[in-house]
Simulated assay, not measured.
Amino acid sequence: MKAMLALSAILLGRPGSRAVIGLVAVGYALLYLWLTGDIAGGGSGAHVSFPAWERVFEWRAPFQFEPVGLLALGPLMWTFSPVNAFLALAVGALVGLNVTAGWLAWRMPQTCRVRSAGVGLFAAVPALLAGGACCAPLVLIWLGLPIAGAVASIAPLLIPVAIALLLAGLWGLARSRV
């Protein structure tokens, strides 16, 4: 636990790292919400309503929760589910932390006590693969590719797997650092 806190302090202690983590988290969350259908086009004008707070923890599918409100602004509509938004931001933040940690290990291997700068690039690859585990099946479905049917059955299981892999990547880098 100390190692994870030390790594977090290093990553969040730099303004540039905080910006990268934030941008990756928000970008990932928006992409995830778009691909799951929570954010979509087709709106007009501005409209905000939250009539269904009692449905906040109702499951639409594994790791997909029912929306409790609608936010429409111009051509975009967001069927807002706080749990989906939280999951998207949490996975996005983990991807951002892993990418930033991999970049740090690549640019400053002595800080992470690795032998060569090339190790940092390999540290970022699992982050991108695990982070893509949530969105990649959704992209296949969204594109309408034939393999999407086979992938759709395992897609809900990839969210906890991605979270576990991202945490394991951070833990491994944190342990090598102390």
Results as ranks from 00 to 15, higher is better:
C134M: 12
V119F: 08
R60S: 13
C134G: 14
R55N: 15
L76N: 09
A150Q: 06
L170W: 10
P51T: 01
R55C: 06
S116E: 07
V151D: 01
G42P: 08
P51W: 00
A155M: 04
Q110R: 10
L165A: 05
L145G: 06
V83K: 06
E54R: 07
T100A: 04
V48S: 02
F122W: 08
F80D: 03
S153Y: 13
H47Q: 10
F80Y: 11
L128I: 01
V95S: 00
I154L: 12
A90R: 15
W59M: 12
F50G: 00
P109M: 03
W59S: 12
L97E: 02
G102Q: 02
G69F: 09
L129D: 06
T79F: 15
V99S: 02
A164G: 09
S81G: 07
G149E: 05
N84F: 02
L165D: 04
A101Q: 01
V151A: 10
V48K: 08
G42K: 09
I141T: 14
M108H: 04
F50W: 08
A130C: 06
T111A: 13
T100P: 00
A155N: 02
A123S: 09
V151I: 10
W78M: 11
L35F: 03
L167P: 12
W106T: 08
L89W: 00
T79G: 14
T36E: 09
F65R: 15
S49T: 06
F65A: 13
L97F: 07
L94G: 05
I154S: 06
A124K: 00
L97R: 05
F63E: 15
I147D: 04
L31S: 11
L87N: 06
F65S: 13
A88F: 00
V99N: 00
P75R: 15
L104F: 01
V91T: 12
A124D: 00
Y32M: 14
L33C: 03
E58T: 14
V161D: 02
A88S: 09
G69D: 06
L70W: 04
A124Q: 01
R175F: 11
L143D: 04
G120D: 02
L140D: 15
Y32P: 15
L138Q: 15
A124Y: 02
D38Q: 11
S44H: 14
L173P: 13
A93C: 08
G37L: 10
L87H: 05
V56G: 07
I159E: 11
P67F: 08
G149C: 01
W78I: 10
E54M: 05
R115W: 10
P137D: 13
C112S: 09
L157S: 14
P109N: 09
P160W: 03
R113N: 11
V99P: 00
V83W: 04
L157T: 09
L89T: 01
W103Y: 07
A46Q: 03
I154G: 04
L31W: 03
V48A: 08
G169C: 11
A93Y: 00
A162S: 10
A117C: 05
L35T: 06
A46I: 11
G45L: 05
A136R: 07
A52T: 01
L138V: 14
L87T: 02
L138N: 10
L76W: 09
A72F: 13
L71I: 15
W53R: 02
A90H: 12
G102D: 02
L73Q: 12
W59A: 10
F50C: 05
L97H: 03
L35K: 04
W53C: 03
H47S: 10
V83S: 05
L73C: 10
V161L: 12
